[in-house]
Amino acid sequence: MATTQSRTLAKFMLMPSVLLLLGWMIVPLCMTLYFSFLDYNLLIPGEHEFIGFLNYEFFITDPAFTESFFNTLLLVGGVLTITICGGIGLAILLDQAIWGRNYVRIMVLAPFFVMPTVSALVWKNMLMNPVNGLFAHFSSWLGMNPIDFFAQVPLLSIIIIVSWQWLPFAALILLTAIQSLDREQLEAADLDGAGPFSKFFYIVLPHLSRAVTAVILIETIFLLSIFAEILVTTSGGPGYASTNITYLIYTQSLLQFDVGGGSAGGIVAVIIANIVAIFLMRLIGKNLEG
């Protein structure tokens, strides 16, 4: 069907995208790799000596790395758990016959469109502030001591904010998936006397597996690189209590100007993302083929 002429043209048309993405990935990545072996600080002019794996050694043996590594895992894992469980619940609820479903949908979806800096600041100041925040008012009405969210539970506070941002996305994708479920199957299960729980576990959940996989993949890509929410709320503190790997590398490279160390961190982050990606691609490969 396709002539040689159209094949040549097709290649030609693909070229810009492929070259740009290659350039965007390969060139800077090679530079990062190169810098990571140098003793290179922007504040110290002069020769950049080759120091082998010393930057990596410093980065990985730094207690801050261990802490931010586990913070990253907690952040990604926590948000994924909340958004997927909550998303499935919301999707099932919104799939029921209810009055004003369109308005409900619009309200549920809204947080996804709020820019990260706005949502983080609104939560930080107007809701979670220990003196003037709404949560503090609530707890004093109830006669309890207000929680100082960002001092006492900094990472959890960020997990809450980020979950609020991503719950709509999970709910929307899962709702779309649930709506494509074959109703006759559920009716048949009803006739066979299946209860709500067995219907959920044997029909709804398997049907959703593909959509859940998609949500995990997409959210993980974004969640590994959470940055703005940390910058405007805790700046990674207290100590390193709410620093993730992205934020750690940012402080090292652009606040301490340590190009070598920051680059080594960047390469470590790429390796971690790759390990996650291999798992995810396998999962997706399995689910998307079908």
Binding site: F227, I272, A273, V276
Partner: peptide, 13 residues
């Protein structure tokens, strides 16, 4: 897969 490249991997360059 290019979407999975963490931005900090190319931040400095």
């Amino acid at each position: 897969s290019t979407k999975m490249l963490p931005p900090v991997g190319v931040l400095i360059p």
